[in-house]
Design a protein around this nucleic acid. Structure first.
Lengths: 209, 209
DNA sequence: CCAAAAATGGAGTTGACAATCCAGAATCGC
DNA sequence: GCGATTCTGGATTGTCAACTCCATTTTTGG
């Protein structure tokens, strides 16, 4: 039985230095893939950016696909961390407004480029890389749950009317955000993002007692 | 002065057969790029799909980038044509509902794969191909205008209250649609699309007299 | 301290892909 | 009908990207 565990745990055990190198690679890959897309980023580019050799990269990742999966996980963490603590207290109209403002602000700062770090990966990977699609789906589920928690809290506290469904409102809000980011990326101005989020927040407000 | 015109009109004059071949190439490229992305589609793939030789393809398009631009124009036409006549009469709540149902139905039929034929191109091209970004922006402007026309009609007819802004509502609706399609593509189910569109349509309804 | 495992350097292989070239066939304009 | 233009076939070239190999150094665990 000890054997079985050993066999399953074939995944390299990483030393301290190893972990450091690995995460340097992932961060570099994430940065480049965000800027140029997955296909637009060669493994060699990642090597240069992370200052590692080919053998190092392939020591930590069997193939490019595996690196891409790690990037998705990494970006999910980044996005969710960046929105904390706002995201974990989306339980009032003021909090929603503050969150909205922060998102718009970020887009202004990055000159409306890049869109959503997670959303951008969808169209390139969802239909061709099953593992990546699963990982992306999980990322959005986490994000959606965070939003949902706040809306549910309002609902349970009775601040939201009973006929308001916090779950589909959360999903709709995430959809408006993603679409807003997408249109903002093409138009190079934040108006679509603002229109989408403002409309959806106003709609949520209409359920408040 | 005659000269100036001549010089400007260097673009090949296409014979009947030429036009036919060219559009076969564009249609093939559009199909493949929708399924596998732009980077995931090689020029050779397009040749096979369209049953043309390399010299034919490069006779009509200077380089792959030029082909991509033609694909964007083509997909814009396809999307807008497919939504006619619904799109040109989005001037009542019933019409909006019918339009929504049609969009959801299409996603069900294609098993939630592929997302939006135009939207999918955004993340791959917007930040790296200026010409493509411009073309995509124009596509969305056309789409937005179609939606806007209907909402403005309701507004002007006095069916929508004066404090409702048809322009930003149109933009918000398009954002919800794009985000809904994106999430639908990752999740492989239409609930995000439905939630996004339903919420936005309900929000529009709240402005009706 | 000393094997065993992990980490690194860097050249090398293989294949794919964008783009070119030139020769020949079909088509158009007059 | 005939010269000019457009269209087509197919081989080719050069570049670049994913991945491999093997030798060497560093770190780990007992």
């Amino acid at each position: 039985m000890e054997n079985l565990i050993e066999i399953k745990k074939q995944e390299h055990r990483l030393t301290k230095k190893g972990k450091e190198t690995r995460s340097r690679i992932v961060a570099a890959a994430a940065k480049l893939m965000f800027e140029r897309g997955v296909a637009g980023t060669s493994v060699e580019d990642v090597q240069r950016e992370a200052k590692v050799s080919a053998s190092q990269l392939y020591h930590y990742f069997k193939e490019k696909r595996e690196l891409v999966l790690a990037v998705i996980v990494y970006q999910t963490e980044c996005v969710l961390n960046a929105q904390e603590p706002l995201l974990s207290h989306l339980d009032s109209m003021e909090a929603l407004q503050t969150w909205r403002d922060a998102i718009v602000q970020v887009q202004i700062e990055r000159k409306c480029q890049g869109g959503c770090a997670i959303g951008s990966l969808v169209s390139e990977l969802a239909d061709t890389e099953p593992a990546a699609r699963t990982e992306l789906a999980s990322a959005f589920v986490q994000w959606e749950h965070s939003i949902r928690r706040g809306l549910r809290a309002m609902h349970e506290r009775g601040e939201m009317r009973a006929d308001g469904d916090p779950d589909s409102l959360a999903l709709a809000l995430l959809a408006a955000l993603q679409g807003g980011l997408l249109l903002t990326q093409v138009r190079r101005e934040t108006s679509p993002l603002e229109a989408g989020l403002d409309a959806m927040i106003a709609h949520i407000r209409s359920f408040m007692v």
